[in-house]
């Protein structure tokens, strides 16, 4: 564990708490992509199967349980409790275009040809693109509530912090995980456009609005 990874994980944790806060305080999931949330739940469930047979640490265990539980809870809130506030007509990204290629990539790039390892690879590739339906929705509506942009910024910061973590681990532990690193860099790159608007507008006190 190093400072970059710890801050990254805390940022990830914060992003989920911000998302829950947004839904509870506005009593609405307007502006949140159900498809992205469903993809994250899929990512956590397929990646954390090792909960059943591999012990890393208490920290690791608790975080995994939290990520699985909170992602399923968000799905419940969106699908049942605040269902009327979710508008599927603007959440139109075709997720099959993500799931198919990620499955193919997992078959091509993995560390061992076993079911848990294939699912692990799949989850890594899927996580890297899971934000796309959300960003696509943002593009379509052209604006977002400020709290939603804080959620996305915290999520993006988590990914960005994992990059110095990998550089640090390369030097201190001689450890490199090419699958996670490649997918992680792609994932972080997807946020660049968002970060530009976030830093130049939202943090200056303006509303998140994309140029027409």
């Amino acid at each position: 564990m190093n400072i970059f990874r710890l801050l990254g994980d805390l940022s990830h944790l914060a992003s989920i708490l911000i998302l829950l806060q947004k839904i509870q305080s506005t009593r609405s999931c307007r502006g949140i992509s159900f498809k992205t949330q469903a993809l994250y739940a899929t990512v956590f469930i397929t990646r954390y199967l090792d909960l059943f047979y591999d012990w890393v640490s208490l920290y690791n265990f608790v975080m995994k349980i939290f990520f699985i539980a909170s992602s399923c809870y968000v799905l419940y809130l969106m699908k049942y409790k605040y269902r009327p506030t979710h508008d599927p007509s603007i959440d139109t990204f075709r997720v099959e275009y993500l799931l198919g290629p990620c499955a193919v990539l997992a078959l091509l790039f993995h560390y061992r040809f076993t079911l848990p390892e294939l699912l692990w690879s799949f989850s890594i590739f899927l996580e890297s693109v899971a934000i796309l339906p959300q960003l696509f929705m943002l593009q379509r509506t052209g604006e977002a509530e400020t709290i939603t942009t804080h959620y996305l910024a915290a999520l993006g910061a988590y990914r960005a912090l994992y990059i110095p973590n990998w550089i640090y681990r390369w030097f201190t532990e001689d450890m490199v995980d090419p699958i996670a690193v490649t997918a992680g860099i792609v994932q972080t790159a997807l946020y660049l456009d968002f970060f530009y608007v976030y830093f130049t507008k939202v943090l200056q006190g303006q509303k998140f609005e994309l140029p027409a």
Binding site: R5, N60, M63, Y111, D174, V176, D177, A180
Partner: peptide
């Protein structure tokens, strides 16, 4: 570097 990393990251 290790060929088959431990999945100790989240």
């Amino acid at each position: 570097p290790t060929a088959s990393p431990q999945h100790d990251e989240l």
